[in-house]
Structure formats: structure tokens, C-alpha cells
Design a protein around this nucleic acid. Structure first.
Lengths: 336, 336
DNA sequence: ATTGACATCCGAAACGTTTTGGATTATGCT
DNA sequence: AGCATAATCCAAAACGTTTCGGATGTCAAT
């Protein structure tokens, strides 16, 4: 049989109200009564029915996330963000509600179910697109949410890494190492940060007076395979690049594989750099030069922001723009 | 203002009951009435309050998972399982509830909250330990659950890959390629599958009459770093192995890095094999020989089993033991 | 006119909490 | 004694849904 407040009330002889208040720690219940009630609750293994509590108190103590569903491809970026959010959520006694959805209409519906269905108190969003409809919806619904990444408009709480200057750092680094032909493996165009990183690449080229060349920008889908294929296209060029910057580490690792398969040495023959600094970057051979993004930490910080919002506070600092950190490792190769 | 059934009832002039039944598709409501009500619901953007529905109908349409929380380390195995479960859950119109917890008491509490708090209709469990208390709890609570992996007792629904014969296949493969000194990078001892894989290793050694040597078994923590370090210990032995089998791909990749750093060629000089067949195995250089575990598919199948259980059926086949598939790639090196 | 069958609708209870607004009793103070 | 105060308790409402058990009206058959 289910153990409810009623069970404990009958068992103890007190009313449901008193049992509830005793367990909730109100100070208008006698200490002895409270002990008695708590003892019974423990003996019976009472666990409050959380959907009843949720219905009554109008809050779920749950944070919602919709994760993009791409079969056979697990994204370390997202997993790390998820870890950070989950960790800090647990810290604040929140759980996570996940809905795995392929990007598109179903994804939006999932947000609607969560938000209007009162299943979550707040939402964490990542991988922002241009004119992101999810952001539009959440704003209109006036529901607490935080975002990893800026979008076109910036009138919502977000944390972002200054992607543009990250790429700039990498281009400058390779130029400093004597490279002229520096290629870029770009992320998909509909992602917001792609624009920012491309801008950083162009700005650096301009200020350093490097020779700009159309074929040096190849698109990948953020996967290792995508980077591998983009690098193949780069190395088939008449004057292939001597340095390759990828928009994430996974694609950079793929590029290193391509280089090896062609009998060249990553680092020595062709310099490679990534973006993110995922754990695998450190364990690759050669170790990968990259831009450090503290994704896990950002997940935690985002969660703190969100919890703050959910408690009705307006955040003192709704926008955080982190300066990226250049991590030079062996895949940069020697100076030339 | 919140849009509830009451709003629609007032707007349409019908009762709450009729509105509810119209939207739920009962056939005791006039078709015209239904159309009218649906039109109003859509115009107002009605979204049922799911915690009310949950409270009344005593089911959450949610599947629970507790994910192990290890900072700074994202596990592709778990991510892939999560993808599979999330995908198939979405297919059945279920969401996921995640609680990230460090293994231990908090983890157990999370299960208790979910199950006794009526937040989930069923639970998916992975990474089984010896005498796993989570399984004990779920059995005693009589709550639907499915498990990836066998434990000591097998009186619950699970899917597992025959780990033992997987390792046996690898040992036989390397023996066939002319190796005698075959080492094993083992997973942590408290995991159930560790026992099974170790048994497979020993059985193969016995039936092939290979020279058994204590130092050839090194433990790792399932991470790339762990495999890297275990391989270092192996290569420092007086008579280092000529072939290394790791209990998962991540550790195998780490081992390959160690081999490269020592100026040796994985495959050519020292054969390497993993277990899991994660995507990165295919993109490594050289590509990794491994045992294919269809984790994503298993996640989906587990979810099907669970949904079946949650609907009150007893599964026709509560135990599925999949035969592993040996995938031979370049890291096996040449025959000797 | 009565009956039965059918189509359509609805009131009220129930799910298990939390909270509001007292009620009751005991205590201290004048 | 009379009265305010404090300590302790509780009945009932509310959260928004689903469902049980009719109620009502219509129509054809008797």
C-alpha cells in the first residue's frame, strides 16, 4: 500500500495538516509531536508524492533540457555541459528533465510541453541558432531560461566564450610560428557561433595581412568524421594549407587522422588546432593545441544563474563573456 | 493567465468533464462539440498541466535514469546508451528524468525519490555492480525496471552482451595472429562485467595453453587516461606483452597513445584491441580492433522492454544475451 | 402513452500535497 | 476573575486533471 500523509496521520493520531507541517519543519508544531511523526514516517518509509506537491506548490524543482538527437554520434561537448548542469542542479536539489529530440518542430514541442505543462521550473539551452525560435518562445512565455551562447539579439541571460577572439588567438599563434597558409574547418552555418568564429578568422587575416583564399574554409558537421573529410578536401587543394584550425576539437582530431593517413605528421608537417579543449585533446598524439572552453564550469555557472532566476531574482549580471585561453601543445609543431 | 480545462469550459459553455473527454478523444461527445472545443483549445494554446494529470492518473510517462557523475570525464558509453534510451523513449512518447549523482548513498536516494515519489514509471539501470543495492531496492519496491548487464542473481529483465566470449574471441584472434604474450587492461573490480571478462580471458588462456603471467593484468578506470597509464605499466615489464586487450575502447585508445609515445607503432609493433566499438574506434589511427557492442541499439531495446513492463505485461523474453561480434581492424597488425 | 436504446452531457469524487485562517487550550499578567 | 498572548493543532480549500455513475433528451418500436 502507498504510504501517504494520511497513513501517517492515522497512525499517529494527528491531522494531515500537522503531519505535513511537522515534516516540513514549521515551528508551530510541538517538538515531541514532530519527533513522533518523523519516527513514524521513517519507520513506514514515507516518501512524498512529488507530483502532488508539484501540483499544489506550482513548482517542479526540475530543470529542463532538450538534447539534440543524432544517432550514433555522441557529442562530448554536450555531455560535458550536461554533466556540469546535472552536477550543479544536484547541488541545488534540482533534478533534470531531458527530452531527446531531433532538431526541428518536435524539439519546439518538447519545450512547450515542459514549460506550459509546468514540468520544469527553468530551461537550459545551448547550441544557439540564428533567429532561434526556442529563445523567442521562452521569452514570450516569460519562463526562466539561460543560454550557452549569444544569438542575434542579446536580451536574455547567457554565458558565452568570446569565440571570435579565440579563433583570432589561434591564427595569430600560427602566424607567429611562421605559417601563411592557414585553413579553417568551419562549423555548420546556421549555428550562431559559426558566424562569430568566421568573423574572428577574417579579422585576424586582415590585421595580419595574410593571403586570403576561398578554398581554405571548409565546412564540417562538428563530428570527428566531418573533420576528417573536411581535411581531405583541404589537402587535395593545389596549394594545401600548412596549418589547420578546426572549430571544435573533434573535427581537429579527425583532421589529424587524415594527415596521418596521407603519411604526414600532424604538428611536424601540418600544424593543427582545435577549439573546446575536451579531455581527448590531451590524450591525442600529438597533443592538440586548442582554445580552452570550461564547458563543465559554464554548465555549473549557467545552472547557478538559472536557479537564481527561478527564485525570482533578476540576475545582477545577465551576460557573461569569458575570454578564451590559448593552450599550445605539440600539434602546433615547431616554429618555422 | 494560465489556460486550464476550466478556461475552455467557460469559453465554450460546456462542462470541464466534456472538455476533458473531447480532448481525450472519447466517443461519447458529439463531433461538432469536439471540433468546437478543439478549436478553442488551439486558439488559447492550451497545454495540459502534466503534474495534475500525473497525480490523477498515477503515471508520469517518464523514464528515470541516474547517471554517474564523474567531473571532467564524459563517458561515450553512457552517452550512447542515453541517446538510445532517449530516442526510443521519445518514440513511445516518454520523457527522461535524469539525476546526476556520484555513486553511493545519494545515488540510491535519487532512485528512491524517483520511484517512491512517483516521478517515473520505470527505470533504466546500467553499469551493474556486484550485489547491486539499486537492483535490490527496485525489486523490493516492485517497480518496473530494466538493466544493461547481468548481476549475481539474474531474476530481473536485462540485456547483456556475452562479455566473456567477447574477450575470448579477442584472445583467440591474437593467438591466431601468432601472439603469446597477451595482456589485459581490466575494468574496476566492483563492476559485474569485469568478472565475466576476466573469466573469458582466463578460459581462453587455458584452452589455448598460453603462458599465464600475473603482471599482464593491469587495472584501469575505463578512461582514456586510465588506459594510458595501465599500458605504461605493461610496457615497463621485463618481458612486455606483444598484444594488449583493453576492457573498453577508451582505454585501448589510451594504450595506443602510450605505445606511440614510446616510439613504437600500434598494430605493427604491439597489437591493440578494445571493447565497445565506439565511433572514435573507427577514426583512430590505426583503426581499432574491437568487440562491437550495439549500445545505442541496446538502449532502444531496453526501452522497448521497459515500456512493455510499464504497461503491465510480463515480458516474453526477460533476458537477452547478445553474442558479441569481433571487428578486426588495423590495430591488430600483421600475422606473425 | 410507454418503453428501451442511444447519444450526449455533467456533477462530484478522487489523486496527495500545501496553506489559509482560524480553533482550542494553557499560561502569564493585571 | 478577566484578558491578552503564546503554543499547538486542524478543517477545508486549492492545485488541474480524469473518471465513475448517472441525468437528460430524442427517437423508434411497441
Amino acid at each position: 500500500m502507498r504510504i501517504t500523509l494520511k497513513t501517517i496521520a492515522e497512525e499517529s493520531g494527528f491531522s494531515i495538516t500537522t503531519v505535513s507541517r511537522a515534516l516540513a519543519g514549521y515551528d508551530d508544531v510541538n517538538e515531541e509531536t514532530r519527533r513522533h511523526i518523523i519516527a513514524i514516517a521513517e519507520r513506514l518509509g514515507y516518501q512524498p508524492n512529488l507530483s502532488a506537491r508539484q501540483l499544489r506548490s506550482q513548482q517542479s524543482h526540475t530543470i529542463g533540457m532538450v538534447i539534440p538527437l543524432t544517432p550514433y554520434f555522441s557529442d562530448p561537448f554536450f555531455m560535458e555541459l550536461l554533466s556540469g548542469v546535472g552536477r550543479q542542479a544536484a547541488e541545488h536539489n534540482y533534478d533534470l528533465r531531458l527530452s531527446a529530440q531531433v532538431p526541428g518542430q518536435d524539439e519546439l514541442n518538447a519545450y512547450h510541453r515542459m514549460v506550459a505543462g509546468r514540468q520544469v521550473d527553468g530551461v537550459v539551452l545551448a547550441r544557439v541558432h540564428h533567429q532561434d525560435p526556442r529563445i523567442a518562445y521562452l521569452q514570450q512565455a516569460q519562463h526562466p531560461f539561460v543560454v550557452f551562447g549569444r544569438s542575434d539579439a542579446e536580451d536574455y541571460p547567457y554565458i558565452d566564450v568570446d569565440s571570435g577572439s579565440g579563433i583570432r588567438l589561434l591564427v595569430e599563434h600560427f602566424a607567429d610560428y611562421g605559417h601563411q597558409r592557414i585553413a579553417l574547418i568551419l562549423s555548420p552555418r546556421d549555428l550562431m557561433f559559426t558566424t562569430l568564429r568566421l568573423r574572428g578568422y577574417r579579422e585576424a587575416f586582415e590585421s595580419l595581412n595574410l593571403p586570403y583564399r576561398e578554398g581554405y574554409i571548409q565546412e564540417g558537421d562538428l563530428s570527428q568524421r566531418g573533420g576528417l573529410e573536411a581535411a581531405e578536401r583541404l589537402l587535395q587543394l593545389a596549394d594545401p594549407p600548412t596549418a589547420i584550425i578546426a572549430c571544435n576539437d573533434l573535427m581537429a582530431l579527425g583532421a589529424m587522422t587524415t594527415i596521418q593517413r596521407r603519411g604526414l605528421r600532424p604538428g611536424q608537417d601540418i600544424a593543427v588546432a582545435g577549439f573546446d579543449d575536451i579531455p581527448a585533446a590531451l590524450d591525442a598524439e600529438p597533443q592538440l593545441t586548442t582554445i580552452h572552453q570550461p564547458i563543465y564550469q559554464i554548465g555549473r555557472q549557467l545552472t547557478d544563474m538559472l536557479v537564481n532566476l527561478m527564485q525570482g531574482n533578476t540576475p545582477d549580471k545577465p551576460h557573461i563573456l569569458l575570454q578564451p585561453e590559448l593552450i599550445i601543445r605539440a600539434s602546433s609543431g615547431p616554429k618555422r
